[in-house]
């Protein structure tokens, strides 16, 4: 059971890849799909590894992703 989750706003993403690169538990990958602006947004490939640390949220220059821990 994952400790946290990431939420992704696909249309706001500009595909910079910061979140994918710097996720400490390698939860994310760049999707092969395009958003309507033609960028590849991130997708979750290992949801169970997400710690909800929100480092993706701190890196994302487009305010398109964030992470949080599940309430206990």
């Amino acid at each position: 059971m994952a400790k946290g989750f990431v939420a992704i706003n696909v249309e706001r993403c500009k595909g910079c890849g910061f979140c994918v690169e710097f996720c400490p538990t390698r939860v994310l990958t760049l999707s092969s799909a395009f958003n309507t602006k033609g960028y590849h947004p991130p997708n979750v490939m290992a949801a169970e590894k997400c710690s909800g640390c929100d480092l993706c949220g701190m890196y994302c220059p487009d305010f398109a992703i964030f992470g949080a821990r599940y309430a206990r």
Binding site: F5, P41, N43, A47
Partner: peptide
Amino acid sequence: EQTLEIPCN
């Protein structure tokens, strides 16, 4: 905006 179908709850 539309959000991706991601396997997170």
